[in-house]
Design a protein around this nucleic acid. Structure first.
Lengths: 238, 238
DNA sequence: TTAAATAATTGGTATGACCAATTTTGCGCA
DNA sequence: TGCGCAAAATTGGTCATACCAATTATTTAA
């Protein structure tokens, strides 16, 4: 059969051309999130290609989080892009062996920006929550608890940034290296000396946010990063 | 035929299980970047599934930048993860309509961190290059030239961060919204008043780096962001 | 009217065939 | 022997078809 994907590119592989066509339909609003795509057999007819090619295109769209295939039902447009970013970044690690230091620096960039935005956007309710978390942490005896509280603290601050992209990606970063982070968090949080220092830094962070003081918040976060970096340097067994 | 992907997961779709198996082979060092995978027909036999399923798995690995298929030759492991990140982020835009402000803030986070790292890592050669760029910009009459120089300036600073992950992602961000950025850059750089302000800010940035002065560099970059943000606010036609 | 049985739809997988690009083989000639 | 080109084999790309499995729609029976 003659390869004929509408009025489109013939240099690409068929499935790539199909992806483009479907993307265009999404951009033009012909297909919207939540909506169901035409059946595969129909798409095949429409684009005048085999169902195989359609399916190869759909597979990539699925891994990219654009669609979700449900056997017996259909292919649905979704907005689940996190999945693809997680996959991508995991692969980045797998293939390029990005070192932990670079990764943490990347994370710090987002955390810091989130904090700076939080200074401008945080409301009193969240401030209170932060203060509670910090005081809970001060009292907590259990290292696992402290670790959980620590995560909550950072998540809450990130959430206050009001930047959904940064929030999402910080979330993804946590997931990508969740094991690593969990372990290190608990390692750091099990040394009594570090606990005291971190507690103080956390208090400074929250105070900075409460005062809506950019400089103080920046300083506190920087201290926090330095502490982590110092830890990474002295424990570079990775 | 009985579905039997080695000793592995039966709840997933076949192609997903295959991906996992191949990933495992990569992690274990059985397959390394640059190397060729076994032929599809062979993989099918090895995993006891159809070539169709193998191919669906390979397609997703290809879009993720893990492999590259060459007709007549084979499937090769690559490290081209940028591609997948670009795809992912494009889709993020396509489906979630992240607004420009959030996107620029994300970008600022990385630029700022890159600058902070550059303060610690930049060498004299790069400093000289930056000074040249700034002085060229001052003299340039052509708006397209200024735009190109501006990009070079930012790229050079990012490069001095020595964090390849941040460099890569900044690169990707540029590509994802290259059209948008290009347009805005030139818009901003065509207003005489902005040109003067930006010139001054660029000088401050480079001076801060030259002095290895964190605070000064931070301040200069912040000013830069504010200028952009101000522009976005007063031109929110998007 | 409703609930269960049945049919139709639709994605998931498997085969086999053939095309197209590349790689390998082998033959013939210098 | 060694080189160069043609033929063959290999390998990914695409297609058609068949059948399975889950879902959805329809019909039937109580």
């Amino acid at each position: 059969m003659e390869k004929n994907v509408g009025k489109f590119d013939n240099s690409k592989k068929t499935y790539e051309a199909i992806i483009d066509l479907i993307k265009i339909d999404i951009m033009n609003g012909k297909i919207k999130p939540g909506q169901k795509l035409p059946p595969e057999r129909e798409l095949a007819k429409k684009f005048n290609v085999s169902r195989t090619s359609i399916r190869e295109a759909l597979r990539t769209l699925e891994i990219l989080g654009v669609i979700k295939s449900v056997q017996g039902s259909g292919n649905y447009i979704t907005g689940d892009v996190e999945k693809s970013l997680i996959e991508s970044m995991s692969m980045m690690f797998l293939l390029q062996q990005i070192d932990s230091l670079e990764f943490y620096q990347f994370r710090e960039a987002l955390e810091l920006k989130a904090a700076m935005l939080a200074v401008q956007n945080i409301d009193d309710e969240k401030i209170m929550k932060l203060e509670e978390l910090v005081s809970e942490m001060a009292q907590s005896e259990d290292e696992a608890d402290r670790s959980a509280l620590d995560k909550q603290l950072h998540d809450t601050i990130a959430a206050a940034s009001n930047n959904s992209m940064i929030i999402q990606i910080l979330d993804i970063l946590s997931e990508v290296i969740s094991k690593d982070i969990k372990q290190r968090r608990s390692e750091i949080l099990s040394d009594p000396d570090n606990i005291k220092r971190l507690q103080k830094i956390h208090e400074e962070m929250v105070y900075g946010l409460k005062q809506r003081d950019l400089q103080a918040t920046y300083a506190a976060f920087t201290k926090h990063f330095d502490l982590i970096a110092e830890y990474l340097r002295t424990n570079q067994d990775y």
